[in-house]
Amino acid sequence: MQTLGGLSGHALERGLRDGRLPLCVGPYVYALQTDQSRVIDGIGLLYADFPLAAADDFVDYRIALRQRGIVSRLRRQVDFYFDHQRPFAPVHRDTAYASLEWGMNWCVSTGANEYLKLHAAVVARDGVAVVMPGVPGAGKSTLCAALGLSGWRVLSDEHAMIVPGTADVIPLYRPVSLKNESIQAICSFAPDAVFGPLSRDTHKGTVAHLKADLDPASHDTRPLPARVMLFPKYAKGEPQRLSARSRTESFIVAAFHSFNYSLLAKTGFRAMQALLDAVQCYDLVYHDLDWALRNLDGLHRQVGAG
């Protein structure tokens, strides 16, 4: 299957300006359109290994980032469009790349209700997935990035999509979103890490996206079984620990971190039940990435052996 990186620079730019580059992202097809050169550069860099869909494939999410009218141009603002609607206020064009990524997340967060969706990073090794729910700032993306740069496969930095009635996670790889101090932490951890455009002064501070599809199977869409649910917490002032936690309390916290648990009602309850039945639950409090990775490697060996 052809990847976006297989296109010439000219074909990439023309395809993105015309909105005729259907991109396979997990089980979905996005059609992206933009006239912003920073965004085109970011997509060219971070999505180089993503497969392209056939021209006549069904497009799930049709989105665009472009300037609208003279006022928008004078203010250097860009609008995000989803199916020709503008669900958000315009943003400064220097932060347009972050808006594209957030908009792509939003599409899945507000749709895709065929799955139980948790706000969680998902990583895997040897076919065993670890689901890491967390509120923004908990340190899940930093940990996810470090794992992705250390031989783990990143299934998602944002959405754990669970097939109801199973513990199967649908891979939905996209670049890992890092904020503020996390960007420097990952630069120090892996000086060769590849980042997309830096978006400063967003409502989340400075944001950058990391290319983390380093595993050969990164764009494989087959589901993987979850065996661990891990609740990471980055805390500088606390002792580091990896400790087992209650399944029922984990259920409630995971439901809190779900985009659609309440919407799915009884189906959501049963889907969460099937997931929790299949996973071991842990808290991970960390401030040292190397320590966290060593402990997760050990946990992976233990779960794999079990």
Binding site: R247, T248, E249, I252, A255, Y261, R270, M272, L276
Partner: peptide, 23 residues
């Protein structure tokens, strides 16, 4: 309602009329 009970001190309870879940 529906219960998620795995022999712990707490149980998850789903109440269908309200759609609420309680620990």
């Amino acid at each position: 309602g529906e219960f998620y009970d795995c022999d712990e001190a707490t149980v998850v309870y789903f109440h269908p009329p309200s759609g609420n879940t309680h620990l």
